[in-house]
Amino acid sequence: MTTGTLYALCGLGLFGIGLGGIILRTHLLHKIIATNVISSGVFLVLVALADRTRGGRPDPVPHAMVLTGIVVAISATALALGLLRRFYRETGRCRLPEPGSLAPGSLAPGSLERWSPERRSEGGDAEKGNAEKGNGEKGNAEKGNAEKGNAEKGNAEKGNGGEASGGKGDGCRTW
């Protein structure tokens, strides 16, 4: 086995690990990291490809592809992190709504809105279980919202609530 093959196999392994991560993990930060693991895997395969010239000088084309790919991966990661921060600030959550609620059949009108604080306060029956889970932080958040009637402040509180509740509900610190 040449070094190139070894590298390529390691790359494929990383690809698999990352793929497992993005499917199995629900925490959004994990998912973002998992995409980065996948891209590292692909880049490793590409780096190994430079060996294809057999002896002699390495093939420059895969290197150029890796460099370009890194730039793309960084931009995508930055955008994802930016979106995640905003998502966290506005909901105090780090997980997307259950995949079940997004299954094609059950994408009922506004199903995605149910978990938003405003909708939650209306007391949707379907969401009760979930609502109870996240009560610790959500209760606080809603109070903040109602009393101050100021989106900014409410959001800040929601953020704090999320952090303070730690392991409970959708606490973003639970890994």
Binding site: T35, L83, L96, S116
Partner: peptide
């Protein structure tokens, strides 16, 4: 919030799709 969640989901899925494509390219 719908849009925010949908954007995040789309981004993650599309990036993984692209990486599959890139592995195929390699």
């Amino acid at each position: 919030l719908d849009a925010l969640a949908a954007a995040l989901r789309y981004l993650l899925i599309a990036v993984v799709g692209s990486l599959f494509y890139l592995l195929g390219v390699s």
